[in-house]
Amino acid sequence: MSQPSEARPTRGPDAESRAWLAGLRADGARGEDARHRLHDLLLRAARFEIGRRRGSLPHLRGGDLDDLAHQSADDALLAILAKLDGYRGESRFTTWAYKFALLEAAVKLRRRAWQGREVPLEPEHWAVLAGPEASPAASAESRDLLAAIAAAIETELSAHQREVLVAITLNGVPIDVLAERLNTTRGALYKTVHDARGKLRAHLADAGLRFENETIEAGA
């Protein structure tokens, strides 16, 4: 995956962020107090995230959800303390810290929502792309593209690329859930998706087909 170049110089942390860093790096009671304060913030962030997403987990009780919030805050605090030297002051410290709590909460919620569910990886889920029953009202252009993609999924992709791409983009499996099942990471799976998409795009280009990434008016 290519890495676009960074377009902005680093600025230093503001006074409040420097105070957080100093507190968290301090020994004794001061350091303990800073870590306690940060945990409180992370817990609030995790509860906020869980509150936004609780509709995806209607079977979970309030106590279960609060346990998830505490686990998220605990894990986020550990991650932050381990990565404190990586904070470069490009945002407020609290914004930087919150993202760890939100990530932990979101991943835990997605995994809890799929707990005990089978992750669909079967090839028949993508094969229907090529069939007219899948998209009876589709334009001829869409049908050509979908049929070409269905063929390319079979011929151009490795079995692993096929499974990952289909599970995530067609079957709606959250990438963090699939990462857990396959004992890998979100980043590694997304790289697989990215490479698979590149192969599909190249195949379409060779066939003279192009997807403009938007609805297309023909003859307007």
């Binding site: 009202a137 334009s139 993609i149 983009t169 990434n213 938007e214």
Partner: peptide, 22 residues
Amino acid sequence: SERRRPDDVDVLRGLLGPEGPE
């Protein structure tokens, strides 16, 4: 005019992803 249905666009967008560096 001929317009792709939104769900077709979503499927295509998901399968093909964004163009360019990311």
